[in-house]
Design a protein around this nucleic acid. Structure first.
Lengths: 214, 214
DNA sequence: TGAAAAACATACAGCTCTGTACAGTTGCAT
DNA sequence: ATGCAACTGTACAGAGCTGTATGTTTTTCA
């Protein structure tokens, strides 16, 4: 850990500024609140939620501990705020990329896995923060599960709309199938540190979508 | 938490004895070492690794703390031992179930998702311990990742053998695809608390296997 | 039966972590 | 310029957690 040289904010955000920008922590944050959110997000994703202490966060953010507790009532509240900020930024990036795709609904669904591939290839990819949070707080904090539910609902809704557009007979069933492929790619790529699982998932999705086309 | 009444070992294992037996913690353990492993496994899976303290483990196991440290040098060593024991028991159950399946290799691969469904339906299902452990110790303890790799390698090898048997052109590619579906089903079922995702994954796998049959 | 090994109960040392207190400093708007 | 709000730096209280020490009781096995 380099908690000491991270005392300088410029230094702290240097290694987080590269490749693509799915992570809101990439943008040099102006306010102290944003610096805290950004530092916490980086550390939570790298080292886990419980394993990351408040002192490490404020050291990386370059703020005083009192400032953190002025903005966030407790570590749990901070975790929820990080998940919400990270989720919002990720969805903006993800669905923004998908909006640029030309082609029919099935092409758009297949593009999901291309965008995932870019995500997985990032050096700062350590799995989906929501999946990791649910894994860590299994039966502990219910509001963390709720945040994950909201996040996953966005993807499900998008997929179901695409399935309807491609006139699938059971659009919810199609959406669930693609969700399984997305979650599986996320976890497999995280474990193997190999973005290629996105393309494996894509192959399967292509075959599957062929079978449900009206 | 019922750490107090769990002082009685019989009581402690009562709520863990039901349905099916993928979990070695189900069997009333004889030795103190097994009781510790079993209690730790239960608590780690329910509440997470960091969130579970040594005192809670020995309270549930009904042993003295010194006994725990006689058998396991540290909490990290205990975590590794739990993962190994849980992984061994799970694989014995899982592949044992698959060995009873009649039919060709594709029928055997599809049966994977039926067995997963039974796993997901268990009231003590809280996701795959290895996936959860990697999520929690992302960059922390390398030997935990190694244990997860070993576990996943067993499944991959089994799937690849089945793919070879069904004369797929690229058996490794087929195995990776099924791994994605398995991981996805595990995570989706864990998040939604809905075992049905195993059947969604199965539908997709059936279509996919049709497409790769020689 | 009797000695050795294992397990038990309890207390506690040492450390880390969360969250608070407080006095001093900066920045900004009117 | 001045007042206000936000931020800083440091210290510390309180709790919890890991791991150890010690003396007693139970189990094992020859």
């Amino acid at each position: 850990m380099t908690a000491l040289d991270a005392h300088d904010p410029d230094q702290a955000f240097q290694d987080a500024t590269s490749v693509c920008d799915w992570n809101f922590a990439r943008h040099m944050p102006a306010t102290a609140r944003d610096r805290i959110l950004s530092a916490a997000s980086y550390l939570f994703c790298h080292n886990g939620f419980s394993a990351t202490g408040i002192d490490t966060i404020v050291a990386r953010a370059g703020t005083a501990k009192a400032t953190l507790y002025n903005h966030f009532a407790s570590k749990d509240v901070l975790i929820e705020a990080v998940l919400e900020a990270e989720g919002t930024a990720w969805r903006r990036w993800f669905f923004g990329r998908l909006q640029q795709v030309r082609g029919g609904p099935d092409q758009r669904v297949l593009a999901v896995f291309d965008v995932l591939h870019d995500w997985f290839a990032d050096e700062n990819y350590f799995g989906c923060p929501f999946i990791n949070a649910v894994a860590e707080f299994e039966t502990g904090n219910p509001s963390i599960r709720a945040a994950a539910d909201v996040h996953k609902a966005h993807l499900f809704t998008w997929l179901k709309a695409a399935a309807i557009e491609m006139q699938a007979e059971q659009p919810e069933s199609v959406a669930r199938a693609i969700v399984v492929l997305v979650d599986g790619a996320i976890v497999a790529a995280q474990h193997a540190r190999n973005p290629g699982f996105a393309l494996d998932a894509r192959r399967v999705a292509a075959v599957y979508l062929d079978s449900v086309r009206a």
